[in-house]
């Protein structure tokens, strides 16, 4: 390793440019979701959305060591994963606005945004729905020898679904290249992990599936990057799956219908004080990767990109209502 042992893992192991891009992605996620929330309140977006503001480190750091060949499966709280895996905010906004230019041509919306070409197999409206799919993607990689690794994002709520058990068991039985990343934001909707989960840390579950399990501070970019990239490397070496638990927090409610009756203001404020973006920015400045001007420049560029994205989406094309059944099946090949 290039730097001494007190230097955070990310700083030691990644190029400065990679780290600056990571910070920019974190800002993009934050501003994208704030922009989406604003558009929602202005009535430009219908439906609901699940915001991950406060969880940006987990999304970006978990994808840090992945290539476009590697896959992720995401969750209903998936905007961060989508940007983390390389999607453009303009096409994401276009999807939000229900436009043809959106990633899903307006058919998917917030809960299904994905840039498949970047290896994102999709957000998922079903809690735990993506876990077996991630294992399937890993089976493909192993069967065809592609060398790809799949990172499977899920929340603390999903760890109590049967699909979690079945999928993690199979991943080990078949020694598949998959990393299960649990973003534990403490609540499945309103029900806390204390009230819903038999173990203290979800990573303890890994023992039941004979795979390594590790719990890290999910708001610490470098800690997440270290745990997940080690697991990815392990998977790539053919040594099988791992479970990483990122302890984090969503600042906003579960969805737009949340009246926040299950959390205290003090708890929320305490987590806001641990803003993962500011922590990562300060870390980069402390290690001389960026200075204040550069940090402000990255923030302003991200803000600009989000504004342009919203403008792009507003100018998009509405799908033709005559095409309501388009994309149900593959279109006839010429």
């Amino acid at each position: 390793m290039a730097k001494d042992d007190n230097t955070p893992f990310a700083i030691r192991n990644y190029e400065a440019e990679t780290l600056r891009k990571a910070l920019r992605k974190m800002y993009l996620i934050r501003f994208f979701e704030e922009g989406a929330e604003d558009s929602y309140m202005r009535g430009l977006i219908h439906g609901t959305m699940h915001l991950s503001i406060g969880q940006e480190a987990s999304a970006v750091a978990s994808c840090l060591s992945l290539t476009d060949e590697d896959k992720i499966t995401s969750t209903h709280r998936g905007h961060g994963h989508c940007i983390g895996k390389g999607a453009e905010v303009g096409r994401m906004f276009a999807e939000f606005f229900g436009k043809e230019e959106g990633y899903c041509h307006g058919r998917g919306g917030s809960m299904h945004i994905a840039d498949v070409t970047k290896g994102n197999l999709g957000a998922n409206g079903i809690v735990g729905g993506g876990i077996p799919i991630a294992v399937g993607a890993a089976l493909t990689a192993k069967q065809l020898g592609t060398g790809a690794v799949t990172v499977c994002f899920f929340g603390d709520g999903a760890n109590n679904e049967g699909a979690f058990h079945e999928a993690l068991n199979m991943a080990t039985v078949w020694q598949l290249p998959v990393v299960f990343v649990c973003e534990n934001n403490k609540y499945g909707m309103s029900t806390s992990t204390e009230r819903s989960t038999a173990v203290k840390n979800i990573s303890e579950r890994a023992a039941a599936y004979r795979m390594p399990g590790r719990t890290v501070d999910g708001n610490d970019f470098s800690a997440v990057a270290e745990a997940v990239s080690e697991a990815v490397d392990r998977a790539r070496r053919g040594e099988g799956p791992s479970l990483v638990e990122n302890l984090t927090y969503r600042w906003r409610g579960h969805s737009k219908s949340d009246r926040n009756r299950y959390r205290t203001k003090e708890e929320i404020d305490a987590w806001i004080a641990r803003d993962p973006i500011l922590r990562f920015r300060d870390e980069l400045m402390a290690h001389g990767i960026i200075d204040v001007d550069a940090a402000e420049g990255i923030e302003a560029a991200a803000r600009q990109e989000v504004e342009e994205g919203i403008a792009f989406a507003k100018g998009g094309t509405a799908p033709s209502v005559t095409e309501v059944t388009r994309y149900v099946h593959a279109e006839a090949r010429p």
Binding site: G129, A137, Q143, A167
Partner: peptide, 14 residues
């Protein structure tokens, strides 16, 4: 889980 693995595998090329 098995059906889901099959779906994920199909989605990625098998």
């Amino acid at each position: 889980g098995g059906a889901g693995v099959a779906v994920g595998a199909a989605l990625t090329g098998l």
